[in-house]
């Protein structure tokens, strides 16, 4: 059997470039360039490792605005066989409930056996989308996965999971959603010919909400949560006294340590 492995990749503002607008004192996200969510590179690597073990195909999927095509091109350059952009104005204002529904239906439409996601994003970082996809489809899930081991003969995927105070090895029936533990899947370098193909020739499939038959189940209306307000967090005031000698440091902290 050939495994279809779908990978969720999200476009996010470049964390390193998000600054505070000096005039308003507010976070200036609009001007930050959009990039692939860092942990999703590791999700791609985890998917490639599964493909190394079984006969399989890796398809990147992204829900986002039309310009999210760039993260899919990058995913193809990194080694994906294909990619789907799911894009619709109707998705505006979606919280994790409709977001995971959209990706769950996309995975179903792709007839995915495995969905691989990143641990969480660097923008809203809820980590709720992977279990949400599994819940919408009634599939098994393996979050905080540090190693993945395909068992095609059993129709199962085995993962070593990071849990409080240790590890466990869990075997899950297909189809399954994996969330790759951040820091455990160092992405392999993209081969040059894939880079050229991804950037110049590749066009992703584009689906809208109607295509997935979810036009009435997405967006602000069905989202149970809403953002009621956002405040910029003032950095904690610190003394920032830097010394060169251990003795001086010891004197400085004397009051705290006796």
């Amino acid at each position: 059997m050939t495994w279809t492995i779908a990978v969720g990749v999200k476009q996010v503002p470049d964390a390193a470039e998000v600054g505070i607008d000096p005039d308003t004192g507010r976070l200036d996200r609009a001007s930050a360039p959009a990039v692939m969510n860092g942990p999703d590179r590791e999700a791609l690597e985890a998917a490639f490792r599964i493909r190394d073990q079984v006969d399989g195909e890796v398809i990147a999927m992204s829900m986002g605005p039309p310009n999210a095509v760039s993260v899919l091109e990058e995913a193809v350059a990194m080694g994906c066989d294909d990619a789907v952009l799911v894009s619709d104005r109707a998705f505006g204002g979606s919280d994790t409930w409709p977001t995971s529904l959209t990706l769950a239906r996309t995975a179903e439409a792709l007839e995915a056996d495995v969905v691989v996601c990143g641990e969480e994003t660097t923008d809203s970082s809820t980590g709720q989308v992977p279990p949400g996809i599994a819940a919408h489809n009634g599939w098994a899930q393996l979050t905080y996965a540090e190693e993945v081991d395909a068992r095609p003969e059993e129709d199962r995927l085995v993962a070593r999971r990071d849990v409080e105070g240790g590890h466990e090895v869990v075997a899950a029936d297909l189809p399954v959603v994996v969330a790759a533990a951040y820091g455990e899947f160092e992405p392999r370098p993209a081969p040059l010919h894939r880079k050229i193909y991804g950037e110049n020739d590749f066009e992703p499939t584009v689906w809208d909400a109607e295509e997935l038959e979810i036009e009435d189940e997405v967006g602000l209306e069905v989202s149970p949560t809403s953002v009621g307000g956002m405040e910029t967090v003032d950095p904690v005031e610190r003394k920032s006294e830097v010394v060169d000698e251990v003795d001086d440091l010891a004197d400085s902290i004397e009051e705290v340590i006796v």
Binding site: T126, Q128, G132, T143, E164, P224
Partner: peptide, 23 residues
């Protein structure tokens, strides 16, 4: 918000169509 809590919370919130705030 342990690995366990973050792992299963969505499996409650999604079918119940509940709001789930993270972290």
């Amino acid at each position: 918000g342990t690995h366990t809590g973050r792992d299963f919370a969505g499996r409650v919130a999604v079918p119940a169509h509940a709001g789930l705030t993270a972290d």
